[in-house]
């Protein structure tokens, strides 16, 4: 994956496959401590203890049809390559939290990339799932919660094309503001 935001999309797909109804995406860019933290937490079905040790193995998957599952292995590799690590905390019935850390300035640390595209993609395909996006850059924090947006929408679907158009502007402006913006 060329961008960390693509890994986030991939891990969020795991949450969807685990029937999560809430997905929380946290990003903390701390250039002073030279640390980048990405956390994806869901309330899906969770990973049984006996499988937890195996999920980083590219030749392990819970899928029945084909015996490979590369997503977590690739994300772990991206973290390890930038003096970071990937941690998975999961409990059956309560959900899974995947945390990846990176040395922020590491030359091999992949760019975050199109975070807005990832967030909008998850919402577009899963209008019934609640998504929380919290992105911190030092003293600035952006917080987006689909429940707040839906409360303004009443019976209109959040993935209605016109709403997605508004949401795209809202998300992109919010992220731009984190990096200085206007």
């Amino acid at each position: 994956m060329r961008e960390l935001s693509l890994h986030i999309l991939d891990i969020a797909q795991n949450s969807i496959a685990a029937s999560a109804s809430i997905i929380e995406i946290y990003i903390d860019e701390n250039s002073i401590q030279d640390r980048l933290t990405i956390r994806i937490a869901d309330n899906g079905r969770g990973i049984p203890q006996h499988q937890l040790a195996q999920v980083m193995d590219p030749f392990f998957t819970s899928r029945k049809t084909r015996g490979v599952g590369l997503g977590l292995a690739l994300f772990a590799q991206a973290a390890k390559g930038a003096e970071g690590e990937l941690l998975i905390d999961s409990n059956v019935g309560t959900g899974t939290t995947v945390t990846a850390t990176f040395r922020y300035s590491h030359i091999d640390r992949a760019p975050l990339g199109d975070l807005a595209g990832t967030l909008l993609g998850v919402i577009m395909l899963n209008p019934e799932v609640e998504v929380v996006y919290q992105h911190t850059c030092l003293e600035r924090t952006l917080c987006i919660d689909t429940r707040e947006i839906k409360s303004e929408l009443g019976s209109i679907a959040i993935n209605h094309p016109a709403v997605m158009n508004w949401l795209e502007g809202f998300v992109r402006e919010g992220i731009d503001d984190l990096y200085g913006g206007e």
Binding site: M1, D10, Q13, G69, G117, L120, L125
Partner: peptide
């Protein structure tokens, strides 16, 4: 849209956009 790891790595997000 195919949104497995393979799909995402190949550009599924751009297709979705």
């Amino acid at each position: 849209i195919g949104m497995g790891t393979c799909g995402i790595a190949a550009g599924a997000r751009d297709i979705l956009q």
